[in-house]
Nucleic acid binder design. Structure first.
Lengths: 336, 336
DNA sequence: CTGCGAATTGTAATCGTTTACATTTTAGTG
DNA sequence: CACTAAAATGTAAACGATTACAATTCGCAG
């Protein structure tokens, strides 16, 4: 079990060096040799053992992408962008899940430390900024979709503060004064930033920030339902709600509708992510769109460049913020 | 750049063999050696190079999972099951996408041929049964969620024929005689099987199969919309519709509702997959549930067993069909 | 036919581990 | 203290590829 380059060499009546040269399309090989080797490869059904090759060349041409779970749909687009950029540079992308567990995330990064991949992209880092900064000094690590405060590692994301501000400013321009926020208990940097954007927008417009208009839940549909229920129980419920994600927003809208609230008229909702269902669920949800594919493409391109620079001090560990956009639909009483 | 076992040996004042023994928790090592090695590892920040290790042991303890795209939510649960079973056996799961391209799928399987992984699970095979059967003779390959006719490779799935029959039989028992089917143009085996189940149910109940009650589209929401529009344009529209997936069913329901049809009363819908949104979208969708986590767990357990059996002829390449279940909700006028 | 540079090929070192086997150290017994 | 079995350690050969370097073959001019 296991045809090696030696077997091919023997069958083709050449040396292993020649076989290797043919397989790697080197120039100095006679036509006869090429034919003999190819015939032998065919006959024996030979596949080079990459463990040997990778060990010798000490590169694997593989990039690890660490997500928190496979379910989140917007990872999908980021991964598509990563895939494309990777393929264009002759890399493969391997996806693994950290299960929201920093210990497991470290275990997965072991693939990087142990040279089983050439670089890693964290799409939902669970390790803290300090640890990651340290690792990024020695390994090719990048963060995407998230930003970590004081993290000296290549990062590609959007400006979540601005995005939150833009969404809430839009609601204010629509005339709303009592604006609710459904955020997450888990203090991921993107949630914190979007929250900051919410606060900034209110302050810029002279609206006081009231803690009773902020509800903390999880990332799921259920949290939206609960948030809405909470708001509707207030003496003066908000007339517009900014939600940390579309999934939450859809939960919030459905709960409000179940209470007889006319969404888009009596109460507006703004989501985040532009998931597929945001334009399936009725009323269609206004939301913030991230350039997912572009983020994926960008992070891989920059990471590959880092992998190629031999001097670790020359590595790019900058923070890149790509432009977001607002998508206006029925939940804010806009067309479509 | 690159601390090796030799460096550790030198620092700890022992031989590389001793270092290796300590790292692999072998018995015949003195406490002094253990301490010295651990100290050296710590001091140098040593990480074993797995390329060397894997080459020597010719095993990687990694399993490849090939999906068609990261977006489909029910992959998520299957992958969770795979992950768990893998972890319990000290394996990692790497996920990659084939982009519905057989050529790319073959490229990805290259990781298996080149020994970069110990086994592979195809969740949406694009290669045909003959090719896969051939590969399965020489490599540890399994198919999950799908079944390929005449494919001699380990397969874990559900009985899609029975599942289709169960769903449609249920509609018949509810009194329906004109039952539509929205299937896919792409002839994936699961679609073919569910279609066969539809046909079986009709025949068993003496209802003729009419081609005008079968609509072929894609896997997306849009196809459901079109399918519904098509059915509603018929002289005698079906009073119940079985859809090949929940995504399609939700599209179909929303189109019917937009035409003023009372879903669940005037027209019933049955989906497939039990995706999260099937109990978010109103009316809640009746659907067939696959035991996704269990399928993932099962396929990995069996694949790992195959990996461990040294004699290729002893490998299990059986077909395992796990039990599905019907989830009844508002779209068939049932509780909840 | 000789000589010589270019083109092709082969030999052997190397990548970083694990591990069979040989060797040394240790501990226990008489 | 001598002897021996057991425990600990070291040496060196794998694993399967790539590649520097050496060696060979080839073609052609003189």
């Amino acid at each position: 079990m296991g045809v090696t380059i030696k077997d091919v060499a023997r069958t083709a009546n050449v040396s292993v060096a020649t076989v290797s040269r043919v397989l790697n399309k080197k120039t100095n090989v006679s036509e006869d040799a090429v034919n003999a080797v190819n015939a032998a490869v065919e006959e024996l059904g030979y596949n080079p053992n990459y463990l040997g090759r990778d060990l010798r060349k000490s590169e694997t041409r593989r990039i690890l992408a660490i997500v928190s779970s496979m379910g989140h749909s917007f990872y999908s687009d980021v991964l598509i962008g990563m895939e494309r950029a990777a393929r264009a540079n002759d890399y493969d992308v391997l996806v693994v899940t950290n299960n929201d567990d920093p210990v497991h995330e470290m275990h997965l990064l072991g693939m990087l430390f142990s040279r089983s991949v050439d670089g890693a992209v964290l799409l939902a880092p669970k390790l803290d900024a300090k640890v990651l900064s340290g690792l990024a000094e020695n390994y090719n690590i990048a963060v995407c979709l998230e930003r970590l405060d004081n993290c000296k590692a290549l990062t590609v994301t959007i400006d979540n503060v601005r995005a939150g501000r833009d969404a809430v400013s839009y609601l204010i321009r629509k005339g709303h004064k009592r604006i609710g926020l459904i955020s997450t208990e888990i203090r991921s940097q993107s949630s914190v930033d979007r929250e900051q954007g919410y606060i900034n927008a209110l302050k810029e417009n002279g609206i006081p920030v009231e803690s009773e208009y902020i509800y903390y839940g999880g990332y799921d549909h259920e949290s939206g339902v609960k948030g809405s229920a909470y708001f509707l129980g207030l003496k003066f419920p908000p007339t517009a709600v900014f939600c940390i994600s579309d999934t939450v927003a859809i939960g919030a809208m459905s709960a409000a509708m179940a209470c007889g609230v006319k969404v888009g008229k009596e109460m507006m909702f703004f989501g985040f992510d532009n998931i597929t269902f945001s334009r399936v669920f009725k009323p269609h949800l206004s939301t913030v769109e991230q350039p997912c594919i572009l983020q994926g493409k960008t992070v891989v391109e920059k990471l590959v460049r880092n992998i190629k620079t031999e001097d670790p001090l020359e590595r790019d560990n900058g923070l890149y913020m790509l432009p977001h956009s607002l998508i206006l639909r029925e939940s804010t009483n806009d067309s479509r």
